[in-house]
Nucleic acid binder design. Structure first.
Length: 592
RNA sequence: GGGGGCGUGGUGCAGCGGUUAGCACGCCGGCCUGUCAAGCCGGAGGUCGCGAGUUCGAAUCUCGUCGCUCCCGCCA
């Protein structure tokens, strides 16, 4: 080794020892006759001192180095003089008095400063990612990521889970997201697909009798990016046999609590995760991924509003639709412009308009043009139902259920941000259970699975498949944290007849099913155990635990929003020989 | 595919029809033996992303284009 200690570990107890350190020059402070260098490696920073009088030769060398030079120093660990300690550094009580100074490798001046977190231009950070990764923030994030994954592996290993690798080259299925395809050289015109997740394979491992499987699995989806979506990402993919829903939920909940306590910079809001049904989540929060860090909940006022003289409300309620409202504390003095902005959000989510009432902060009197359609008793009932106080703003949505949910859900989200109600210092997990088996409405005259076609209906709901399939609830569950979906899973169908019935309902012909899932269906005929699983998204969880707004910050080499890598210029063209070997001809889009 | 934001010395920003295009940090040179975002003195460094247009005059206005980013669509 070229070093005896790391740059983060020397303390007062090491005083007197001769040590060798190696690392990067973080900063130099040349005082004329004495030079201080902060030497940095992954573990921290240590101050080294070189004195012109004691060591003229090395002093001359040290005068020449600058930021990011790689150097090796040997010397005695000494206590810093009285009053010269640096309380900011763990190594701040000591320094290394150099008597040998070696430049292992010089460095160009980097395009940005490593020890300051001031670069905002993503182009630069990603082009010089290897320099960006030297910075404390990125090192901290990747360490959190490592710790989280290590915790997961240990936790599941202790519980008799087996980590099994599954193929990256596998079969394309037109379901779900767009696949990344890999052409086959050996089989002209045929393609592999990179897995969107190891979904099928983990179920086959259950058929194979492994009972408890997990994998830190890379997944690929060729869809447009978001702050929480990259084309390749990592899931904790896991599956268990002979379990019911709550077995999975309890296991994962304990895992999450342990992992957050062990690794997270941001603490848990609560150690018992609330379990909301899908219906409850929609009715209270207007979304299936509720952020429960703050209130502003949706309140049903259909009975009061429906009895009012306001035609829009009354007619809508008469048609069996709801009127719901949220009470926005302290927003009663919002300007016409601010309320107008909220109305724009409502319209963007399908509303025809946005009705509101403001409670005067002095008198508590109700203002707003719709108030005149309400009796005094109705207004009192409204304020009581909504818990409204003087100075509050009431926002109403009246439309179909799904429009009401999305309008108020989005307004709640926006106002939560505007009013600063989203506590960034806490992680608020919640389960969402009892999802509908099928998506609302028919697609080409058939039902569409809301999760995937192997998701089991709730046992007691199976008879409903014959009479009212749209109402059937499933064994699907999601884990949500601070409004982000961080895991999704289900108990699967393991019996052939039930699987066939679901396929019929979603309009899958026997032939289609056989071509796409023949191996699955056949496997299920050889004694498939009852099983289920879940797949937490590692990138999102680590980003939340690191307090980062974007999953790029917890990935070593992420891609841009255009799915490119600026460091290596990927994707790039290939030579025609490669295309020829793969039997591929290009059909480029026309430039207009 | 659509919409919003951003693009000015190496970095972060200011300037938003007429300025010698400004500030901080960094960089280069000098001074300095206890600094730790060292300090002091001096200096270099800019085709204002690119292209076209409007104008007597464009970093500034318009259009196009490229890059980064956020959102909708898409995506479990």
């Amino acid at each position: 080794m070229l070093k005896t200690h790391s740059c983060g570990e020397l303390r007062a107890e090491h005083v007197g020892q001769i040590v060798t350190l190696a690392g990067w020059v973080n900063r130099t402070r040349d005082m004329g006759g004495v030079i201080f260098i902060d030497l940095r490696d992954r573990n921290g920073k240590t101050q080294v001192v070189i004195n012109a009088g004691d060591n003229p030769q090395d002093f001359a060398t040290a005068e020449q180095v600058s930021r990011e030079y790689v150097v090796q120093v040997t010397g005695e660990v000494g206590l810093r003089p009285e009053g010269m300690n640096n309380a900011e550094l763990p190594t701040g009580d000591i320094e290394v008095k150099v008597n040998q100074f070696v430049v292992l490798n010089p460095s160009k001046t980097p395009p940005f400063m490593i020890d300051r977190d001031d670069v905002t231009d993503e182009t630069l950070r990603l082009k010089y990612r290897y320099l960006d990764l030297r910075r404390e923030r990125m090192q901290r994030n990747l360490i959190i990521r490592h710790k989280a994954i290590k915790f997961i592996r240990d936790y599941l290993d202790e519980r008799d889970f087996l980590e099994v690798e599954t193929p990256i080259l596998f079969k394309s299925t037109p379901e779900g997201a767009r696949d990344y395809l890999v052409p086959s050289r050996v089989h002209p015109g045929k393609f592999y697909a990179l897995p969107q997740s190891p979904q099928q394979l983990k179920q086959l491992l259950m058929v194979a009798g492994y009972e408890r499987y997990f994998q830190i699995a890379r997944c690929f989806r060729d869809e447009d990016l978001r702050a929480d979506r990259q084309p390749e990402f990592t899931q904790l993919d896991m599956e268990m046999s002979f379990v019911e829903r709550d077995d999975i939920l309890n296991l994962i909940e304990e895992l999450m609590v342990g992992m957050v306590k062990h690794t997270s910079l941001v603490p848990l809001a609560h150690e018992v995760f609330p379990r909301l049904t899908y219906r409850e989540a929609m009715e209270r929060f207007g979304t299936d991924r509720p952020d429960i860090r703050y209130g502003l909940e949706l309140v049903d006022v259909s009975d009061i509003a429906g009895a009012s003289a306001f035609k829009v409300f009354a007619e809508n309620v008469a048609n069996g639709n709801p009127v719901k409202a949220i009470c926005v504390p302290g927003a009663g003095d919002y300007s016409r412009k601010e309320v107008g902005e909220l109305e724009e959000i409502a319209k963007a989510n399908g509303a025809k308009g946005l009705a509101s009432m403001a409670l005067s902060s002095e008198t508590g009197e109700m203002k707003g043009f719709i108030t005149k359609f309400f009796t005094v008793d109705q207004l009192i009932a409204l304020t009581e139902r909504l818990g409204a106080k003087p100075g509050d703003l009431l926002l109403f949505a009246s439309d179909t259920k799904s429009v009401v949910y999305s309008v108020l859900g989005e307004l709640r989200n926006e106002l939560g941000t505007r009013l600063g109600l989203k506590d960034t210092g806490t992680l608020a997990f919640t389960w969402v259970i009892d999802f509908p088996l099928f998506e609302e409405g028919l697609e080409d005259g058939h039902y569409a699975p809301s999760h995937h076609m192997f998701t089991s209906p709730k046992r007691d709901q199976i008879p409903l498949l014959d009479t009212n399939p749209g109402e059937v609830l499933s064994e699907q569950y999601d884990l949500v944290c601070n409004g982000f979906e961080v895991a999704g899973g289900s108990i699967r169908i393991h019996e052939r007849p039930l699987q066939r019935k679901i396929m019929e309902l979603i309009g899958f012909s026997f032939e289609e099913a056989k071509a796409q899932f023949g191996h699955m269906l056949e496997a299920f005929e050889y004694g498939a155990p009852p099983h289920g699983g879940i797949a937490p998204g590692i990138d999102r969880l680590v980003a939340l635990m690191a307090g980062e707004p974007n999953i790029r910050e917890v990935m070593a080499f992420p891609k841009t929003a255009q799915a490119t890598d600026l460091m290596s210029d990927t994707p790039s063209e290939v030579v025609s020989k490669q295309l020829k070997e793969l039997h591929i001809a290009l059909a480029m889009p026309e430039k207009s």
